[in-house]
Design a protein around this nucleic acid. Structure first.
Lengths: 245, 245
DNA sequence: TAGTGGTCTAGACCACCCA
DNA sequence: GGGTGGTCTAGACCACTAC
């Protein structure tokens, strides 16, 4: 293990960050898949030729970023969306009264298209690259609350179809198990807009009534963008919850 | 320093968390104010009778929570909203085109009232306790984008008035320097609504056009709620930015 | 040069899980 | 009982800041 590049190198990074990058490499390459246990801290320390504390600090950061999950006495595991508890990590919509509700995802349409300049840019694809577009409705306890339009690279998600989506569990769980793509981070942009006819009908609100629009770019390991979606949220009985620290 | 309460005590907490609580106590009591340097790690280690590494871990957590700010070679400082860079930590509204704009806060009204049941509950006050209500408009580069209505305990913020607000810098900076109340965390709830006449006029949009409503409860040290506000955000040329990890 | 935070190490012991 | 993560220590050295 190199002891940094020394002497004011602008690329300096401490040992534990180099270790972190090595572990990241194993995640990106899919060597350790979602839900798997990674080797123990002492095992990794030996393998990399550093002390256990240094490996620990690397894993600390990755656990803080929700890439890994530690379990005392058992081991450290690659984070997965199948794990109940982190299954709806990215859904910030909660009922106003706080009573939890069962959620139901209803796939509506799924078709192929070519990436326009905007989608190509956000997903880092060539313009005209094949993409798959999925529309779905999310119900929380019998009430339709989110209408999503989702853009994906057809290359990354080859055989995606209504049938495939219907069969799977949560969407991100499906992406993990069927395509080996694990969603790790997302950037969202929120706006208020007036409901168009389609959204209004699906969400059972009056046309022109205010809706929350949530545009999301979702990333896998290494900040690689892999999903773009636009969601129309009905905020009659729900709200988008956010914590500022 | 007690070595935890031993023997399956349900209140067990590791040494570094006990140290963290001791440091928190110094923040809550105002002994170390916003912007101040706290004693060095070794100084604190000696004072508390623990090793430097343990103090370090306590400070690590507090730095991660934006309570403290470390500066290599200089020391560790109590986080402050006066520090440019963390001055607008809680404002998530950014222009669509990404070009940063100068912001201008315009106080509109300020008056006293008695806390209704809802405000009393969110601010943990007695119903009927004296509160101060402040209305203000936020402009980003000549465009009015946020209309805020802010509820505060008159006891915590005694002589708050339009004049005081006008004189001060940012609102949270003022709260720190004048009242010794440092905003540390906030919970927000977002909804889309139709603009009423007042908001529409102030934000220069058509009545009934969609606005983003942001309800925020803001906390000081120890999760004590000290501010409740409702903001109407115009999302014509701006959006609310959020990062999901 | 002295003081601060930042990194790294080696080793001890504890708490937890499982066979 | 053996393996895992979690805590705590003591000491060394590096990087940065200020004087």
């Amino acid at each position: 293990m190199n002891r940094a590049s020394s002497l004011h190198a602008p690329t300096f990074s401490p040992l534990y960050r180099q270790i972190k990058q090595l572990i990241m490499g194993n995640l990106e390459s899919g060597e350790w898949g979602p839900g798997d246990a990674i080797p123990s801290e002492s095992e990794l320390a030996g393998r990399f030729g550093v002390s256990q504390g240094t490996v620990r600090k690397a894993i600390d950061e990755m656990a803080a970023e929700n890439l890994l999950v530690r379990q005392q006495g058992k081991g450290t595991f690659v984070a997965t969306h199948k794990d109940p508890g982190s299954a709806f990590r990215f859904l910030r919509l909660v009922p106003n009264d706080g009573v939890p509700q069962v959620s139901q995802s209803i796939p509506l349409e799924c078709w192929r298209a070519k990436a326009g300049p905007d989608v190509a840019r956000t997903l880092a694809l060539e313009p005209g690259a094949p993409i798959t577009i999925l529309r779905r409705l999310l119900k929380l306890g019998d009430e339709p609350v989110v209408f999503d339009e989702i853009y994906l690279s057809s290359e990354l998600f080859p055989d995606l179809s209504l049938e495939v989506v219907r069969a799977g569990d949560s969407l991100y769980g499906l992406f993990e198990s069927r395509y080996g793509v694990c969603m790790v981070r997302a950037d969202e942009r929120l706006r208020a807009v007036a409901a168009d006819r389609v959204s209004a009908e699906l969400l059972q609100v009056a046309e022109g009534s205010p809706l929350l629009v949530v545009e999301r770019v979702t990333f896998t390991y290494g900040r690689k963008p892999v999903e773009w979606r636009r969601g129309f949220y009905s905020t009659r009985n729900h709200h988008y919850r956010n914590e500022l620290g």
